[in-house]
Design a protein around this nucleic acid. Sequence first.
DNA 1: ATGCCCCCGGTTCGGGGA
Length: 268
Amino acid sequence: MKIATWNVNSVNARLHNVLAWLEEARPDVVLLQELKTTEDKFPRMEFAVAGYDAAVFGQKAWNGVAILAREKITAVEPGLPGDATDEQARYIEATVGHQNGGGVRVASLYLPNGNPVESEKYPYKLKWMERLRAHAARLLRREQPFVLGGDYNIIPEARDCHDPQGWADDALFRLESRRKFRALLNLGLTDALRACNDKPEQYTFWDYQAGAWPRNHGLRIDHFLLSPQATDLLADCAVDPAPRGADKASDHVPVVLTLRQPTKLHNI
DNA sequence: ATGCCCCCGGTTCGGGGA
């Protein structure tokens, strides 16, 4: 099963880029972030024609997350638990396939940016990360495969940034943010890319400004975190930088996770 | 130190992104 995550920076502005990539990469599941539209304006029909069912948690102009899948999507839960007053559409979770026979629980998440750090946006980011940790802890008690994929807005380590010193005080890289990310890993979750690939410059984002893409001034901020049961199925995880070079590109590129079928485990 | 670029809503500029 191929699962991709991609912050598309407006699903309607990016529709042709996304459809072209789906046809080429043919993932089974796609976790989308930054839809920048409401559910009624989501291009559901265009994705259906391409072979994908969709679960959408949208919002006018900002945020918005979705799950696309070739298989049936069930048990959809929009919103991250832990704060009934949170109106930002940044989390959607669902089951793809049959949970008891090769299916997997997946979440598409768009973690708050948190800049500027002296504003109320930074404590909102940190609290959101605490809510994510509490929710992940509950999911772990099910002892089943799950995948938390999305734009985490966290640079985990210096090798994941073109200029670590320049980003030292930024909400994406300051120690307080990275400590919260490590707390997620410390639950027993696995950063899938780093389980497969130890190389630097595995960037997933390049700013539109200042020639960041041609200069390769990137960040690795889009991640897949896997439960132990999903990690046991991990076959591969890799960034696909090619879409960043297209016309009208998103500033993020897809990360692709490949899981083995769980039934294969019985033959080991 | 700031803006560069790109998207949205809603009008030709402001807010937000990272």
